[in-house]
Design a protein around this nucleic acid. Structure first.
Lengths: 226, 226
DNA sequence: TCACAAAGTAACCGTTTAGTTACTGGCTTG
DNA sequence: CAAGCCAGTAACTAAACGGTTACTTTGTGA
Protein backbone atom coordinates (compact mmCIF):
# COMPACT_ATOMS: atom_id res chain seq x y z
CA UNK A 1 0.00 0.00 0.00
CA UNK A 2 1.49 3.34 -1.01
CA UNK A 3 1.41 6.52 1.05
CA UNK A 4 -1.54 8.06 -0.75
CA UNK A 5 -3.73 5.01 -0.29
CA UNK A 6 -2.74 4.71 3.35
CA UNK A 7 -3.68 8.36 3.91
CA UNK A 8 -7.02 7.81 2.28
CA UNK A 9 -7.77 4.75 4.37
CA UNK A 10 -6.83 6.55 7.56
CA UNK A 11 -9.12 9.37 6.58
CA UNK A 12 -11.99 7.02 5.92
CA UNK A 13 -11.56 5.34 9.29
CA UNK A 14 -12.61 8.54 11.03
CA UNK A 15 -10.27 10.92 12.82
CA UNK A 16 -6.66 9.95 12.76
CA UNK A 17 -6.01 9.89 16.50
CA UNK A 18 -5.80 13.67 16.88
CA UNK A 19 -9.05 14.92 18.40
CA UNK A 20 -8.81 18.47 17.01
CA UNK A 21 -10.85 17.93 13.92
CA UNK A 22 -13.46 15.38 13.01
CA UNK A 23 -12.05 13.99 9.79
CA UNK A 24 -15.15 12.57 8.18
CA UNK A 25 -15.74 15.74 6.16
CA UNK A 26 -12.58 17.60 5.39
CA UNK A 27 -12.52 19.50 2.10
CA UNK A 28 -8.90 20.58 2.34
CA UNK A 29 -7.75 17.08 3.05
CA UNK A 30 -9.85 15.62 0.26
CA UNK A 31 -8.52 18.20 -2.17
CA UNK A 32 -4.96 17.52 -1.10
CA UNK A 33 -5.51 13.80 -1.33
CA UNK A 34 -6.80 14.11 -4.90
CA UNK A 35 -3.88 16.34 -5.85
CA UNK A 36 -1.35 13.90 -4.40
CA UNK A 37 -2.97 10.96 -6.16
CA UNK A 38 -3.11 12.90 -9.44
CA UNK A 39 0.58 13.78 -9.13
CA UNK A 40 1.45 10.10 -8.91
CA UNK A 41 -0.90 9.11 -11.73
CA UNK A 42 0.22 11.84 -14.16
CA UNK A 43 3.89 11.30 -13.32
CA UNK A 44 3.59 7.56 -13.93
CA UNK A 45 1.43 7.59 -17.04
CA UNK A 46 1.62 10.99 -18.68
CA UNK A 47 -1.45 12.99 -19.51
CA UNK A 48 -2.86 10.61 -22.12
CA UNK A 49 -2.21 7.54 -20.01
CA UNK A 50 -3.54 8.92 -16.72
CA UNK A 51 -7.00 7.68 -15.72
CA UNK A 52 -9.47 9.82 -13.82
CA UNK A 53 -10.97 6.75 -12.16
CA UNK A 54 -7.53 5.63 -11.01
CA UNK A 55 -6.86 9.03 -9.44
CA UNK A 56 -10.16 8.99 -7.56
CA UNK A 57 -9.51 5.49 -6.29
CA UNK A 58 -5.93 6.31 -5.26
CA UNK A 59 -7.22 9.34 -3.40
CA UNK A 60 -9.76 7.19 -1.57
CA UNK A 61 -12.63 9.24 -2.92
CA UNK A 62 -14.71 9.26 -6.09
CA UNK A 63 -14.77 11.10 -9.39
CA UNK A 64 -17.48 13.51 -8.37
CA UNK A 65 -15.14 15.13 -5.82
CA UNK A 66 -12.37 15.36 -8.36
CA UNK A 67 -14.63 17.29 -10.75
CA UNK A 68 -16.01 19.27 -7.83
CA UNK A 69 -12.60 20.57 -6.78
CA UNK A 70 -10.73 20.75 -10.05
CA UNK A 71 -13.21 21.11 -12.91
CA UNK A 72 -11.85 18.52 -15.31
CA UNK A 73 -8.88 16.30 -16.05
CA UNK A 74 -6.84 19.04 -17.72
CA UNK A 75 -7.36 21.56 -14.95
CA UNK A 76 -6.37 18.89 -12.45
CA UNK A 77 -3.20 18.29 -14.43
CA UNK A 78 -2.52 22.02 -14.40
CA UNK A 79 -2.96 22.10 -10.61
CA UNK A 80 -0.48 19.23 -10.31
CA UNK A 81 2.01 21.03 -12.52
CA UNK A 82 1.62 24.28 -10.61
CA UNK A 83 2.14 22.55 -7.30
CA UNK A 84 5.26 20.85 -8.63
CA UNK A 85 6.76 24.18 -9.73
CA UNK A 86 5.80 25.81 -6.44
CA UNK A 87 7.62 22.96 -4.73
CA UNK A 88 10.95 23.59 -6.44
CA UNK A 89 10.67 27.37 -6.17
CA UNK A 90 10.02 27.05 -2.46
CA UNK A 91 13.01 24.76 -2.01
CA UNK A 92 15.20 27.16 -3.97
CA UNK A 93 14.51 29.87 -1.41
CA UNK A 94 16.26 27.87 1.28
CA UNK A 95 19.51 28.06 -0.64
CA UNK A 96 21.64 31.07 0.19
CA UNK A 97 24.53 31.53 -2.21
CA UNK A 98 25.51 35.10 -1.42
CA UNK A 99 27.63 34.19 1.63
CA UNK A 100 29.71 31.61 -0.17
CA UNK A 101 33.00 31.85 -2.06
CA UNK A 102 32.32 31.76 -5.83
CA UNK A 103 33.50 28.21 -6.50
CA UNK A 104 31.80 26.94 -3.38
CA UNK A 105 28.58 28.67 -4.43
CA UNK A 106 28.53 27.07 -7.87
CA UNK A 107 29.21 23.69 -6.27
CA UNK A 108 26.36 24.20 -3.79
CA UNK A 109 23.97 25.19 -6.57
CA UNK A 110 24.89 22.10 -8.55
CA UNK A 111 24.49 19.81 -5.55
CA UNK A 112 21.20 21.41 -4.57
CA UNK A 113 19.77 20.90 -8.05
CA UNK A 114 20.99 17.32 -8.17
CA UNK A 115 19.50 16.55 -4.76
CA UNK A 116 16.17 18.10 -5.67
CA UNK A 117 15.92 16.14 -8.93
CA UNK A 118 16.92 12.93 -7.15
CA UNK A 119 14.31 13.38 -4.44
CA UNK A 120 11.52 14.48 -6.77
CA UNK A 121 11.30 12.10 -9.71
CA UNK A 122 7.67 13.15 -10.18
CA UNK A 123 8.87 16.66 -11.00
CA UNK A 124 11.17 15.37 -13.72
CA UNK A 125 8.42 13.22 -15.13
CA UNK A 126 5.95 16.09 -15.22
CA UNK A 127 8.57 18.23 -16.97
CA UNK A 128 8.90 15.50 -19.57
CA UNK A 129 5.15 15.33 -20.06
CA UNK A 130 4.87 19.08 -20.27
CA UNK A 131 7.58 19.25 -22.92
CA UNK A 132 5.95 16.49 -24.94
CA UNK A 133 2.98 18.83 -25.19
CA UNK A 134 5.13 21.85 -26.02
CA UNK A 135 4.57 23.45 -22.61
CA UNK A 136 0.90 23.90 -23.39
CA UNK A 137 -0.21 24.13 -19.75
CA UNK A 138 2.83 25.96 -18.46
CA UNK A 139 2.31 28.69 -21.06
CA UNK A 140 -1.37 28.85 -20.22
CA UNK A 141 -0.79 29.33 -16.49
CA UNK A 142 -0.62 32.97 -15.38
CA UNK A 143 0.17 31.71 -11.91
CA UNK A 144 3.31 29.97 -13.13
CA UNK A 145 4.40 32.85 -15.32
CA UNK A 146 4.53 35.06 -12.24
CA UNK A 147 6.42 32.43 -10.31
CA UNK A 148 9.77 32.82 -12.01
CA UNK A 149 12.98 31.50 -10.60
CA UNK A 150 15.46 33.85 -8.99
CA UNK A 151 18.19 31.33 -9.50
CA UNK A 152 19.61 32.97 -12.59
CA UNK A 153 19.98 36.33 -10.84
CA UNK A 154 21.59 34.77 -7.79
CA UNK A 155 23.91 32.78 -10.02
CA UNK A 156 24.81 35.87 -12.04
CA UNK A 157 25.91 37.63 -8.84
CA UNK A 158 27.97 34.65 -7.82
CA UNK A 159 29.64 34.43 -11.23
CA UNK A 160 30.33 38.18 -11.21
CA UNK A 161 32.14 37.84 -7.91
CA UNK A 162 34.17 34.98 -9.35
CA UNK A 163 34.98 36.99 -12.45
CA UNK A 164 36.08 39.97 -10.35
CA UNK A 165 38.47 37.72 -8.46
CA UNK A 166 39.86 36.41 -11.74
CA UNK A 167 38.58 32.90 -11.00
CA UNK A 168 36.05 32.59 -13.82
CA UNK A 169 36.18 33.46 -17.49
CA UNK A 170 34.46 36.81 -18.17
CA UNK A 171 32.38 35.46 -21.06
CA UNK A 172 30.60 32.89 -18.88
CA UNK A 173 26.80 33.12 -19.26
CA UNK A 174 24.70 32.37 -16.13
CA UNK A 175 21.93 30.72 -18.14
CA UNK A 176 24.42 28.39 -19.79
CA UNK A 177 25.84 27.43 -16.41
CA UNK A 178 22.41 26.71 -15.02
CA UNK A 179 21.36 24.74 -18.11
CA UNK A 180 24.56 22.70 -17.83
CA UNK A 181 23.85 21.77 -14.22
CA UNK A 182 20.21 20.99 -14.93
CA UNK A 183 21.01 19.01 -18.09
CA UNK A 184 23.52 16.73 -16.39
CA UNK A 185 21.13 15.98 -13.53
CA UNK A 186 17.97 15.69 -15.58
CA UNK A 187 19.29 13.37 -18.29
CA UNK A 188 20.99 10.96 -15.91
CA UNK A 189 17.84 10.50 -13.83
CA UNK A 190 15.05 10.81 -16.36
CA UNK A 191 16.77 8.49 -18.84
CA UNK A 192 18.02 6.02 -16.25
CA UNK A 193 15.87 3.18 -17.56
CA UNK A 194 16.99 3.22 -21.17
CA UNK A 195 20.59 3.94 -20.16
CA UNK A 196 20.66 1.09 -17.64
CA UNK A 197 19.20 -1.28 -20.23
CA UNK A 198 21.61 -0.30 -22.97
CA UNK A 199 24.82 0.01 -20.97
CA UNK A 200 24.04 -2.82 -18.57
CA UNK A 201 25.08 -0.82 -15.52
CA UNK A 202 22.83 0.18 -12.65
CA UNK A 203 23.04 3.95 -12.54
CA UNK A 204 20.88 4.22 -9.43
CA UNK A 205 23.08 2.51 -6.89
CA UNK A 206 24.44 4.73 -4.16
CA UNK A 207 28.05 4.81 -5.39
CA UNK A 208 27.05 5.70 -8.97
CA UNK A 209 24.77 8.49 -7.78
CA UNK A 210 27.48 9.94 -5.58
CA UNK A 211 30.01 9.72 -8.42
CA UNK A 212 27.66 11.50 -10.82
CA UNK A 213 27.03 14.28 -8.31
CA UNK A 214 30.78 14.86 -8.05
CA UNK A 215 30.98 14.69 -11.83
CA UNK A 216 28.38 17.44 -12.24
CA UNK A 217 30.28 19.72 -9.86
CA UNK A 218 33.59 18.97 -11.52
CA UNK A 219 32.29 19.48 -15.07
CA UNK A 220 30.52 22.71 -14.19
CA UNK A 221 33.54 24.21 -12.47
CA UNK A 222 35.96 23.06 -15.15
CA UNK A 223 33.82 24.72 -17.81
CA UNK A 224 33.81 28.15 -16.20
CA UNK A 225 37.30 28.43 -14.76
CA UNK A 226 39.71 30.81 -16.35
CA UNK B 1 -0.13 18.49 -45.83
CA UNK B 2 2.78 16.71 -44.19
CA UNK B 3 5.14 14.32 -45.87
CA UNK B 4 3.44 11.16 -44.68
CA UNK B 5 0.04 12.25 -45.95
CA UNK B 6 1.48 13.35 -49.27
CA UNK B 7 3.13 9.96 -49.69
CA UNK B 8 -0.13 8.21 -48.95
CA UNK B 9 -2.05 10.31 -51.44
CA UNK B 10 0.55 9.73 -54.14
CA UNK B 11 0.32 6.04 -53.45
CA UNK B 12 -3.42 6.05 -53.72
CA UNK B 13 -3.30 7.85 -57.08
CA UNK B 14 -1.72 4.78 -58.65
CA UNK B 15 1.93 4.45 -59.52
CA UNK B 16 4.07 7.43 -58.59
CA UNK B 17 5.52 8.23 -62.00
CA UNK B 18 8.03 5.42 -61.92
CA UNK B 19 6.75 2.56 -64.03
CA UNK B 20 8.74 -0.16 -62.30
CA UNK B 21 6.06 -1.27 -59.89
CA UNK B 22 2.29 -1.04 -59.94
CA UNK B 23 1.62 0.76 -56.68
CA UNK B 24 -1.97 -0.24 -56.04
CA UNK B 25 -0.95 -3.20 -53.95
CA UNK B 26 2.36 -2.66 -52.29
CA UNK B 27 2.77 -4.37 -48.93
CA UNK B 28 6.22 -2.96 -48.21
CA UNK B 29 5.15 0.54 -48.96
CA UNK B 30 1.98 0.23 -46.88
CA UNK B 31 3.96 -1.18 -43.99
CA UNK B 32 6.52 1.62 -44.22
CA UNK B 33 3.78 4.20 -44.48
CA UNK B 34 2.11 2.91 -41.30
CA UNK B 35 5.45 2.85 -39.50
CA UNK B 36 6.23 6.43 -40.50
CA UNK B 37 2.78 7.63 -39.46
CA UNK B 38 3.06 5.78 -36.16
CA UNK B 39 6.45 7.35 -35.49
CA UNK B 40 4.93 10.82 -35.81
CA UNK B 41 1.87 9.94 -33.74
CA UNK B 42 3.79 8.28 -30.89
CA UNK B 43 6.41 11.02 -30.85
CA UNK B 44 3.77 13.74 -30.68
CA UNK B 45 1.41 12.15 -28.20
CA UNK B 46 3.21 9.46 -26.26
CA UNK B 47 1.90 5.95 -25.99
CA UNK B 48 -1.24 6.77 -24.04
CA UNK B 49 -2.11 9.75 -26.21
CA UNK B 50 -1.47 8.10 -29.58
CA UNK B 51 -4.57 7.04 -31.49
CA UNK B 52 -4.66 3.99 -33.72
CA UNK B 53 -7.26 5.64 -35.96
CA UNK B 54 -5.05 8.70 -36.34
CA UNK B 55 -2.11 6.53 -37.39
CA UNK B 56 -4.18 4.70 -40.00
CA UNK B 57 -5.50 7.98 -41.40
CA UNK B 58 -2.05 9.56 -41.45
CA UNK B 59 -0.72 6.52 -43.29
CA UNK B 60 -3.51 6.80 -45.88
CA UNK B 61 -4.75 3.34 -45.06
CA UNK B 62 -7.06 1.82 -42.46
CA UNK B 63 -6.80 0.09 -39.12
CA UNK B 64 -7.17 -3.38 -40.54
CA UNK B 65 -3.79 -3.06 -42.30
CA UNK B 66 -2.16 -1.76 -39.15
CA UNK B 67 -3.29 -4.82 -37.21
CA UNK B 68 -2.42 -7.00 -40.18
CA UNK B 69 1.19 -5.88 -40.28
CA UNK B 70 1.93 -5.12 -36.64
CA UNK B 71 -0.46 -7.11 -34.44
CA UNK B 72 -1.56 -4.45 -32.02
CA UNK B 73 -0.82 -0.94 -30.79
CA UNK B 74 1.97 -1.99 -28.46
CA UNK B 75 3.78 -4.08 -31.05
CA UNK B 76 3.51 -1.17 -33.46
CA UNK B 77 5.06 1.09 -30.84
CA UNK B 78 7.85 -1.44 -30.39
CA UNK B 79 8.48 -1.48 -34.14
CA UNK B 80 8.68 2.33 -34.11
CA UNK B 81 11.12 2.27 -31.20
CA UNK B 82 13.27 -0.39 -32.87
CA UNK B 83 13.41 1.57 -36.09
CA UNK B 84 14.41 4.71 -34.20
CA UNK B 85 17.30 2.90 -32.50
CA UNK B 86 18.36 1.29 -35.76
CA UNK B 87 18.42 4.80 -37.22
CA UNK B 88 20.90 6.20 -34.73
CA UNK B 89 23.06 3.07 -34.72
CA UNK B 90 23.26 3.23 -38.51
CA UNK B 91 24.23 6.90 -38.42
CA UNK B 92 26.88 6.16 -35.79
CA UNK B 93 28.62 3.82 -38.20
CA UNK B 94 29.37 6.70 -40.56
CA UNK B 95 31.48 8.38 -37.89
CA UNK B 96 35.12 7.36 -37.93
CA UNK B 97 37.00 8.58 -34.88
CA UNK B 98 40.11 6.44 -35.11
CA UNK B 99 41.89 8.68 -37.61
CA UNK B 100 41.45 11.85 -35.57
CA UNK B 101 43.61 13.50 -32.94
CA UNK B 102 42.13 12.83 -29.47
CA UNK B 103 40.73 16.31 -28.83
CA UNK B 104 39.42 16.52 -32.38
CA UNK B 105 37.79 13.12 -32.00
CA UNK B 106 35.95 14.06 -28.82
CA UNK B 107 34.78 17.28 -30.48
CA UNK B 108 33.53 15.34 -33.52
CA UNK B 109 31.66 12.87 -31.34
CA UNK B 110 29.99 15.72 -29.46
CA UNK B 111 29.02 17.52 -32.66
CA UNK B 112 27.76 14.33 -34.26
CA UNK B 113 25.53 13.57 -31.28
CA UNK B 114 24.22 17.13 -31.17
CA UNK B 115 23.46 17.10 -34.87
CA UNK B 116 21.68 13.78 -34.69
CA UNK B 117 19.50 14.90 -31.77
CA UNK B 118 18.73 18.18 -33.50
CA UNK B 119 17.69 16.47 -36.72
CA UNK B 120 15.70 13.69 -35.04
CA UNK B 121 13.37 15.21 -32.47
CA UNK B 122 11.15 12.13 -32.80
CA UNK B 123 14.00 10.02 -31.44
CA UNK B 124 14.30 12.22 -28.34
CA UNK B 125 10.56 12.12 -27.84
CA UNK B 126 10.43 8.34 -28.10
CA UNK B 127 13.27 8.10 -25.60
CA UNK B 128 11.23 10.25 -23.22
CA UNK B 129 8.18 8.06 -23.68
CA UNK B 130 10.20 4.91 -23.22
CA UNK B 131 11.71 6.21 -19.99
CA UNK B 132 8.31 7.24 -18.67
CA UNK B 133 7.43 3.56 -18.94
CA UNK B 134 10.69 2.42 -17.35
CA UNK B 135 12.07 1.10 -20.64
CA UNK B 136 9.37 -1.57 -20.73
CA UNK B 137 9.56 -2.11 -24.48
CA UNK B 138 13.29 -1.60 -24.84
CA UNK B 139 13.94 -4.29 -22.21
CA UNK B 140 11.46 -6.59 -23.91
CA UNK B 141 13.09 -6.31 -27.32
CA UNK B 142 15.66 -8.98 -28.04
CA UNK B 143 16.36 -7.23 -31.32
CA UNK B 144 17.39 -4.05 -29.53
CA UNK B 145 19.44 -5.83 -26.89
CA UNK B 146 21.62 -7.24 -29.65
CA UNK B 147 21.91 -3.85 -31.30
CA UNK B 148 24.27 -2.26 -28.84
CA UNK B 149 26.24 0.85 -29.54
CA UNK B 150 29.93 0.64 -30.29
CA UNK B 151 30.33 4.26 -29.35
CA UNK B 152 31.64 3.58 -25.88
CA UNK B 153 34.39 1.29 -27.20
CA UNK B 154 35.40 3.75 -29.90
CA UNK B 155 35.40 6.56 -27.37
CA UNK B 156 37.47 4.50 -24.93
CA UNK B 157 40.16 4.06 -27.61
CA UNK B 158 40.13 7.75 -28.35
CA UNK B 159 40.44 8.65 -24.68
CA UNK B 160 43.25 6.13 -24.19
CA UNK B 161 45.21 7.77 -26.99
CA UNK B 162 44.63 11.14 -25.33
CA UNK B 163 45.72 9.79 -21.97
CA UNK B 164 48.88 8.30 -23.49
CA UNK B 165 49.78 11.68 -24.92
CA UNK B 166 49.23 13.28 -21.54
CA UNK B 167 46.31 15.33 -22.85
CA UNK B 168 43.50 13.79 -20.77
CA UNK B 169 43.27 12.87 -17.11
CA UNK B 170 43.84 9.14 -16.60
CA UNK B 171 40.75 8.69 -14.42
CA UNK B 172 38.37 9.81 -17.19
CA UNK B 173 35.56 7.28 -17.72
CA UNK B 174 34.27 6.86 -21.31
CA UNK B 175 30.68 6.30 -20.18
CA UNK B 176 30.76 9.52 -18.19
CA UNK B 177 32.06 11.42 -21.19
CA UNK B 178 29.35 10.01 -23.43
CA UNK B 179 26.62 10.68 -20.85
CA UNK B 180 27.86 14.24 -20.52
CA UNK B 181 27.64 14.86 -24.26
CA UNK B 182 24.24 13.21 -24.52
CA UNK B 183 22.87 14.98 -21.44
CA UNK B 184 23.79 18.45 -22.67
CA UNK B 185 22.22 17.85 -26.06
CA UNK B 186 19.16 15.97 -24.89
CA UNK B 187 18.08 18.35 -22.14
CA UNK B 188 18.47 21.50 -24.22
CA UNK B 189 16.33 20.12 -27.03
CA UNK B 190 13.78 17.96 -25.24
CA UNK B 191 13.07 20.62 -22.62
CA UNK B 192 13.13 23.56 -25.01
CA UNK B 193 9.45 24.38 -24.51
CA UNK B 194 9.46 24.72 -20.74
CA UNK B 195 12.85 26.44 -20.79
CA UNK B 196 11.78 28.94 -23.43
CA UNK B 197 8.61 29.70 -21.48
CA UNK B 198 10.37 30.17 -18.17
CA UNK B 199 13.45 32.04 -19.31
CA UNK B 200 11.75 34.01 -22.05
CA UNK B 201 14.47 33.30 -24.59
CA UNK B 202 14.09 31.39 -27.82
CA UNK B 203 16.58 28.55 -27.57
CA UNK B 204 15.86 27.30 -31.07
CA UNK B 205 17.09 30.21 -33.13
CA UNK B 206 20.14 29.51 -35.25
CA UNK B 207 22.61 31.54 -33.19
CA UNK B 208 21.54 29.92 -29.91
CA UNK B 209 21.80 26.44 -31.37
CA UNK B 210 25.27 27.14 -32.73
CA UNK B 211 26.35 28.60 -29.39
CA UNK B 212 25.09 25.56 -27.48
CA UNK B 213 26.91 23.21 -29.83
CA UNK B 214 30.14 25.06 -29.12
CA UNK B 215 29.28 25.00 -25.44
CA UNK B 216 28.90 21.20 -25.44
CA UNK B 217 32.29 20.77 -27.09
CA UNK B 218 33.94 23.23 -24.73
CA UNK B 219 32.41 21.73 -21.58
CA UNK B 220 33.26 18.19 -22.60
CA UNK B 221 36.87 18.98 -23.41
CA UNK B 222 37.33 21.14 -20.31
CA UNK B 223 36.08 18.30 -18.13
CA UNK B 224 38.55 15.71 -19.39
CA UNK B 225 41.73 17.75 -19.92
CA UNK B 226 44.60 17.22 -17.58
C1' DT C 1 -33.42 22.88 16.29
C1' DC C 2 -33.96 23.16 11.87
C1' DA C 3 -32.90 24.97 7.47
C1' DC C 4 -29.45 25.41 4.30
C1' DA C 5 -25.11 24.82 2.05
C1' DA C 6 -21.42 22.19 1.18
C1' DA C 7 -19.23 17.37 1.20
C1' DG C 8 -19.79 13.07 -0.36
C1' DT C 9 -21.69 8.71 -2.91
C1' DA C 10 -23.00 5.66 -6.58
C1' DA C 11 -25.14 4.73 -10.54
C1' DC C 12 -25.47 6.34 -14.97
C1' DC C 13 -24.54 8.32 -19.92
C1' DG C 14 -22.73 9.34 -24.43
C1' DT C 15 -18.46 9.11 -26.81
C1' DT C 16 -14.20 7.42 -27.94
C1' DT C 17 -11.17 3.72 -28.28
C1' DA C 18 -8.63 -0.59 -29.51
C1' DG C 19 -9.55 -4.35 -31.83
C1' DT C 20 -12.63 -7.58 -35.19
C1' DT C 21 -15.60 -9.33 -38.79
C1' DA C 22 -17.16 -10.04 -43.15
C1' DC C 23 -16.30 -8.82 -47.29
C1' DT C 24 -14.06 -7.21 -52.17
C1' DG C 25 -10.51 -7.07 -55.49
C1' DG C 26 -6.13 -8.17 -57.57
C1' DC C 27 -1.68 -10.82 -58.14
C1' DT C 28 0.67 -15.25 -58.67
C1' DT C 29 1.25 -20.00 -59.87
C1' DG C 30 0.14 -24.91 -60.93
C1' DC D 1 -7.05 -19.75 -66.62
C1' DA D 2 -8.90 -20.66 -62.47
C1' DA D 3 -7.90 -21.39 -57.73
C1' DG D 4 -6.24 -19.65 -53.83
C1' DC D 5 -3.94 -16.43 -51.18
C1' DC D 6 -2.93 -11.89 -49.79
C1' DA D 7 -3.77 -6.69 -49.81
C1' DG D 8 -7.15 -3.76 -48.81
C1' DT D 9 -11.93 -1.65 -47.23
C1' DA D 10 -15.68 -0.31 -44.30
C1' DA D 11 -18.78 -1.16 -40.98
C1' DC D 12 -19.16 -3.09 -36.55
C1' DT D 13 -18.47 -4.29 -31.35
C1' DA D 14 -17.42 -4.43 -26.59
C1' DA D 15 -15.10 -2.13 -23.22
C1' DA D 16 -13.10 1.87 -21.30
C1' DC D 17 -13.26 6.50 -20.68
C1' DG D 18 -14.31 11.38 -19.13
C1' DG D 19 -17.86 13.63 -17.36
C1' DT D 20 -22.85 14.14 -15.13
C1' DT D 21 -27.09 13.37 -12.54
C1' DA D 22 -29.75 12.49 -8.76
C1' DC D 23 -29.38 11.73 -4.43
C1' DT D 24 -27.75 11.31 0.81
C1' DT D 25 -25.09 12.85 4.72
C1' DT D 26 -23.02 16.12 7.75
C1' DG D 27 -21.65 20.36 9.84
C1' DT D 28 -23.12 25.08 11.14
C1' DG D 29 -25.26 29.34 12.45
C1' DA D 30 -29.76 32.08 12.64
Amino acid sequence: MDKVQADAKARRAGNGGRAERAAQRDPERTRASILAAATVEFAENGIGGARVDAIAERAGTNKRMLYHYFGDKEQLYLAVLEEAYIGIRTAEKSLNLSDLAPEQGVAELAMFTWKYFLEHPEFLSLLGTENLHRARWLRQSTRLKELHSHFIDKLADLLDRGKAKGLFRVDVDPLNVYLTIAALGYFYLSNQHTLTTIFGRDLMEEASLEAWKRHIVQVTLASIRR
